[in-house]
Computed example of a mutant assay.
Amino acid sequence: MTALISGSMAFDTIMVFRDRFSNHILPEQVQILNVSFMVPELRKEFGGCAGNIAYNLKLLGEIGIPLATVGADFEPYAQWLDRKGIPTDHIKVVDDSYTAQAFITTDEADNQITAFHPGAMSEAHQVRVPTDAGGRVGIVAPNGRDGMVQHAEQFAAAGIPFIFDPGQGLPMFEGEELLRFVEQARWVAVNDYESRLLQDRTGLALEALAERVEALVVTLGGEGSRIHTGGRVLEIPAVKPAALVDPTGCGDAYRAGLLYGLLNGLDWEITGRVASLMGSIKIEQAGTQNHGFTRDGFRMRFQQEFGTEM
C-alpha cells in the first residue's frame, strides 16, 4: 500500500560533540554568543523528512512516494533510492539550486544544534499531489513553506486523509495558518516542544486541538508518546534501545510507524507501539537511513517488547 510523503529531501552532515553544550554556553551571555565546538566525528548521510519516512516505511513493507524538489547535486541520492525501491517519480530537480543541506551537531546528552540550507526545497510547490498514484494516506512534513500549504490543500481537495507534521517548519506559520492545516488534516503529529508552540500560536489548548482531528500524537522522547483520540489519552511506552547512538531521524522513523498503522487499519494502541519501536531501532544506528531489519524480526521484537502481536 502507498503513502504520499510531502517533505524535504536533504544531505545531512552529522557531527558529534563529545561533551554537553550546556557546559560551554553561559546563559547570562547568550546575547553575545560566540562558541566553537570541536567535533572529531563527522559523517555525510542521505536524509530529509520525506526520504527518511519513505525509507522506514519501505522497511515495514509499504511504499512511500516522496513529493519533493531537489538540486542538481541529487544524483547519488537518486541512485540510493532506486536501489532501495523507493519511487522518485514525484521528485523534481531544480537545476540552479543545491539539494537541501542540514548540518547537525549532537552532544552527549542527545541535544542537537542544526543549521539548515533549504536550497531547492523552497520550490516544493512545483510538485503537485498526484491523484493517480494509489496514495491511500499522506503526510505533510517539513518542506518548503508554499509546498506545505499547497500540498495540504491538494490532499484535502483530493479527499486523501493526511497527517499534519509541522516539525521544524512550525515557526514559519502564524496561528490562523496552523489552524487551517489542522482543519484540513485528519491527524496531527508533533513533539512536546512543538505541541507547546502550536498551542501558543493557535491560542487553543491541546485538548481543544485534539477535538478537531481524529488523533493528535505528541512524542516525548525517552518518555514515550501520548495519542489523544476519541476523548481519551493513550500512553504509549518508549522502547529501551540496545544502544543510544544517534537520535537524528527518530521522529521520521516514528512517523513511518504511524503511516504503517494507518495504511493497515491498526488501532492506535498498536500503531503507537509500532511507531515507538521504529524510533528505538533508528536510535541504535548512526545516520537516518542505515538501520535495517526483516519484517519477521520486527514482529518478534514487537512481541518481546510489548507482550502482544502486531
Rank of each mutant, 00 (worst) to 15 (best):
L206F: 05
A256H: 13
F74K: 04
D296A: 15
L178E: 03
W80V: 08
T99F: 01
V245I: 09
D146S: 15
G144A: 14
T229N: 10
K58W: 02
R145Q: 13
D267S: 05
V274N: 02
Q29T: 10
M310P: 07
A243K: 08
F155N: 09
H125R: 14
G231E: 12
D267H: 01
L262T: 00
G47N: 10
G167K: 11
L262Q: 02
A72F: 08
F74G: 02
I32N: 12
R299F: 09
T131Y: 05
I65G: 07
I32T: 12
I63W: 03
G292M: 12
T229Q: 12
N34D: 10
A68D: 00
T271L: 02
E62C: 11
P66V: 08
E223H: 11
V218F: 02
S225P: 06
E174L: 06
L57E: 05
V233L: 00
Y55F: 15
E108N: 11
Y254C: 12
L216T: 09
L60A: 08
L277A: 11
Q168M: 09
T202E: 03
A185T: 11
I227P: 03
F11M: 13
A50T: 00
E108I: 01
Q126G: 07
H125C: 15
S22G: 14
G159M: 04
Q184Y: 06
G307I: 07
E177Q: 14
L209H: 05
Q79K: 07
C49W: 00
E223K: 11
I113H: 14
F306V: 08
E45D: 01
S280W: 03
H24S: 03
G138L: 03
D146Q: 15
A185C: 06
P40A: 04
F74I: 05
D82A: 15
R232G: 10
G265S: 07
A72H: 14
P76R: 05
E174V: 06
Q199F: 11
I281Q: 14
P76V: 12
M15E: 02
T308G: 04
W187G: 03
P118R: 14
P40F: 00
Q184I: 09
G203N: 14
H24G: 01
T288N: 06
G230H: 08
V149Q: 13
A102P: 08
N191E: 00
N191R: 03
D73Q: 11
H90I: 05
D296V: 15
P76S: 07
P241W: 02
G159H: 04
S36V: 10
P171A: 04
D192Q: 14
D73F: 04
K84P: 08
A253F: 02
A100P: 04
P171Q: 04
D296S: 15
Q184C: 09
K58L: 05
Q304F: 11
D146V: 11
L216F: 12
T88I: 07
G272P: 01
N191I: 00
I25M: 03
Y260Q: 12
A156I: 04
T271R: 05
G221P: 00
V129N: 02
D252Y: 13
